[in-house]
Amino acid sequence: MIREFAYVKVSTLKEATDALQSGNAKPLAGGTDLLVDMRNGVSRPDLLVDIKGIEELKTFSMNKGNGIEIGANVTLNTIIEDKKLRELCPVITDSAMSIATYQLRNRATLVGNICNASPAADMAPALYILNALVVAAGVNGERTIPIGEFITGVKKTTLEKGEMVVRVKIPRIPAGKTCFLKKQRIRGHDLATVNMAGLADRESNTLKVCIGACGITPILLEGLDDLYRNIRDRENLAEEVAMIALGAVSPIDDVRASAEYRRGIVYAYTKRLIREITSPN
């Protein structure tokens, strides 16, 4: 059961970062991970700082020049329902749609998903391939952390005591095809057995693939750009990237799947992903 804790609802970032200085305090946005952890006794904060009243955290903007900004109070359904985003950067929309249930997505936020720092976080692969930046605020002001440095391990981030994430920035809207794939045990809501996102960027002529649930953090594949630039045969490329993926991942056996199965899915899905993002139409 959820045990006793103190609660404060703040309306400014300053109030929030001040409150977060005390004891074992945690910011509360959607609460769909935090309240479950508290109920299960995994997390027992003594203070919840409700940040939903902070207007500036509702930032949700996008344009071709400045990229995309998604504040800590933006729910997944807000993201999913945004038609412009779906047009500009569907991999974000698709990743968000794969998470949990409609009801939970009315509360859950993109920022919360990455702060929870599950290796299987469904928003993470897309943010990795888009070079997303995580903006954290503390009493000493803001700092910006590349997503790949933000998540440091299972349920671990680089956030320091008293810091909270205020928004995520995607500096540049990708020019090219993206794709998000997620293997789950049933078609209904489930955590990812394996998830991945890919981008074949025509402008920079780069290929990015990030795979989740196969290591302590999401894994961004390296060395794909040269392969992509020298592409002759899409099927060959798919095979080569799949082999690189298998070399990069280090999945474990757990209650959701065996390492062997995860590797099998990594192989099959990487190929599907590459075929999809490199298809001419």
Partner: peptide
């Protein structure tokens, strides 16, 4: 699912799935 000591590994809806309307 049980481990070798007989501990029940999936006693929640997170890891004991029943079919949903999508299934």
């Amino acid at each position: 699912k049980f481990d070798e000591k007989g501990k029940f590994l999936n006693p929640t809806f997170v890891d004991y799935k029943i079919l949903t309307a999508k299934d």
